[in-house]
Design a protein around this nucleic acid. Sequence first.
DNA 1: TTGACATATATAGGCTGACTATATATCATA
DNA 2: TATGATATATAGTCAGCCTATATATGTCAA
Lengths: 115, 115
Amino acid sequence: MELDKSLVSGSMALLVMKLLEEKDLYGYEMIELMKNRSDDTFHLKAGSLYPLLHGLEEKGYVEAYEQEAAAGKPRRYYHLTKRGHAALSEKEQAWEIYARAVRRVLRGGVCLGEA
Amino acid sequence: MELDKSLVSGSMALLVMKLLEEKDLYGYEMIELMKNRSDDTFHLKAGSLYPLLHGLEEKGYVEAYEQEAAAGKPRRYYHLTKRGHAALSEKEQAWEIYARAVRRVLRGGVCLGEA
DNA sequence: TTGACATATATAGGCTGACTATATATCATA
DNA sequence: TATGATATATAGTCAGCCTATATATGTCAA
């Protein structure tokens, strides 16, 4: 079953920043890592990722620097800033709240805590 | 903390259909029910809901019928069709897959099962 | 009586986020 | 030499939810 793409909306920035929490990465690497970490669920496209990274850079959540690779084009590494860490933390909390609310609704009305 | 609206994208159709699984509802009722069921997390707006319902009707996922209320405007009730039930089931599965993948990424790399 | 508010549905227009398509450039391999 | 993997980038498009606004009825307070 193909994943409904409309479900993916909005959380890519969160997921990308989460990858950057561990270590600096370049774009192409993130695409591969995202695929692996999500157990082949998220196929983040280059055309989605690079504009997203530029947006995060504008907001001051990441900083970029060029680095030569052993072969091929030089790589543009991204580093999560202090502000980025703070934003990531908030987005993680927001995700928790959101996912919990979806679970509540999907669990249906026959449960405790019904308002 | 205000919920990041961009996270909500895409899953409203799923949640609305889930409400309709239990019983027929009219639009205004869904807005209230959604708020209660989600523990005051989802504030679905009328301007989002009604076009969404019309879309579900066009796809044959719901059927509508008018019914007079004790007072005020007649209410437009929505009923989940057989096709709607099937679509709901698929969307629920898609949500499970998506949420699991997000959890995997958020859990980070220092875990078992890393691909 | 009139103004505000809750109930109830509807549409127009805008913003954001992810997509496809395309462009560029290097290197390996067939 | 041409195909594919690596690597980054932008333009244009589409979908989803938003705000703002319109309509209509009933209740309650000033």
